[in-house]
Design a protein around this nucleic acid. Structure first.
Lengths: 131, 131, 131, 131
DNA sequence: GTGGTCTAGACCACC
DNA sequence: GTGGTCTAGACCACA
C-alpha cells in the first residue's frame, strides 16, 4: 500500500516512486501486475492525478514499469532485476545517513550500536504482535 | 563542521539548522560561543548568504541562538537544555525510520543488523583516517 | 534557435529536447553554456513554462544538462560525448524511415536515389544563397 | 502489408491511413479491391478494432475508400487519381525534412549523401532476403 | 530573478 | 474507462 507524507521535504512523486520500488522488490508487485490507475491512486492519496502521472512516467523511464496506452501501467518483466541492482546502494545510503546522524548526537559507536539494536528489537516485538 | 548536500531534497537552510543543533547538543558549541559569520559560512559552503541568513533567523526564532546587531550570532544560554529535550525523540525517530525502511527491503532482522554493523564499521574506519 | 511545430504529432517537449540535442551536437552549445531560462523560452515559443520545464528536466535526467537551483540550466561537461553516442542511431533511424516511406511510393531504388539527390542539391542551393 | 509502430508519436490510426494510401498508390490495392475487415486487421496488428475503424472512417471521408454496410470496405474508383495528386508533394516534403534533419547533425553534404546511400543499400539487402 | 513542485482542469488517442 | 500532453497559475527554495 502506497503512503504519502505531504509534510515531508521529499516530493510526493518521489515518495510514490519509492513506494512502488519497494513493493516490486518485496514482490508484492510481480512482473505484469497492473499498477492502480492514475486517477484511482490520486483519489486515494488525496493528491492531483498529474503528480501520480509524473511518478509513473519516471518509473517507466527507469524501466520499472511499462504503459499500455488506454489500458494502464504494468510492472516490467525485468523489474525485480533492476531493483536488486538499486537495492544495495539505496540501503547503504540510508544506513550511512542515520549513522552519520547518530554519530553527531551520541559520539560513541557502542552507544550507536546499542541504541540501534534496542530500536530494532522494539520494532520486532511490534511486528510479532501483529501490525 | 557544517556540511550540506545540495542534491538532497531537504532544503539547505534546514541542513544548516540541523548541523548547528547537533553541534550545540555535542557541546562543540557552548552558550555564548559565536557562530561563523553568515558571509564566511556561505563562502565555505559555496552557497548564497541569504540561505545561511535564513537558517540563522530560524535558529534564533526557535531560541537556540541570539543576535548582536553588528557583531554576529551567539549560542543561547539555555540552548543545551532545549536540545536535551529534543534529542532522544529525534534519535529514536530517525532509527525507527531507517529500520522500517530496511525491513521493507530485506525483511530479515538479522540481515538488517548485520548490514547496519557493516556500515557502522565502515563509517568508523573513515573517521579514523581523518574527516 | 529552437523551433516548435504545435501541429506536429511529436510532443512539444520532445521537439525542444531534440532542438537542444542538435545544438549541443553542432557545438552551438558548448559545455557549461547556459540554456535560456524556462520562462524566457516559454515566452519566446508562446508555450507554457511547464512544457519547457519538462523538456529541461528530461534533458537533465538523460545527462545532457545540469541545473543550478535558483540560477539556471547549463550544458553538461560530457554532453558532446553523449550526443556522439546518440547521433548515429538517431540519423540511421531517420534515414531508414524515409527510405521505407519512399520504397512504398516509388518502388525503384534508383528512383529513390535520384529523387533524394535532387532534393539534396536543391537544399544546398538554398543554403548557398543565404538562409 | 500494413505495419504499425506503437512507440511512435504518430497516432496508430494515422499510420494505418498512411499505409493504405501507399498500397493504393502502388496499386497493390486497386479500385473495388476489398480492405481487410476491421476485426481481422485489429487482430493482426494487436490493436483495438475502434482504432482501425477510425482509420477506415477517415479514409472514407477523404474519398479513398467506400463502405458497403454489412459487407466491408472497398477502394474507391478514383482513389489512384487522388493519390497521384498528393504523391509528389508528400515525397518531396518527406525528403526535405530528412535532409534538413541530417544537415543539422552532420553538416557535410557529401556525408549526408554517403550515409543515405549506405542506409539505402542496407535496406535493399534486407528486402532481397524476404522481409 | 531562477528552477521545482503541485493543483485544477482541458483535450486527445486509445480500449 | 485508460494514460499523455498541455495550459494556467499557485507557492517554495534559492541567487
Amino acid at each position: 500500500m502506497i503512503k504519502v507524507d505531504t509534510s515531508s521535504f521529499v516530493p510526493i512523486y518521489e515518495q510514490i516512486k519509492k513506494g512502488f520500488k519497494k513493493e516490486i522488490f518485496r514482490q508484492d508487485l510481480k512482473p505484469h501486475d497492473p499498477l492502480p490507475s492514475i486517477r484511482d491512486l490520486a483519489t486515494e492519496l488525496l493528491i492531483n492525478p498529474n503528480t501520480v502521472a509524473r511518478a509513473y512516467r519516471e518509473l517507466e523511464m527507469e524501466g520499472f514499469i511499462y504503459t499500455k496506452k488506454g489500458k494502464g501501467c504494468y510492472v516490467s518483466d525485468d523489474s525485480t532485476q533492476r531493483m536488486t541492482e538499486e537495492r544495495k546502494s539505496i540501503l547503504a545510503r540510508t544506513f550511512d545517513d542515520v549513522i552519520e546522524e547518530a554519530k553527531k548526537y551520541s559520539l560513541n559507536p557502542d552507544e550507536i550500536k546499542k541504541f540501534f539494536e534496542e530500536r530494532l528489537a522494539r520494532s520486532l516485538e511490534g511486528t510479532k504482535r501483529g501490525e
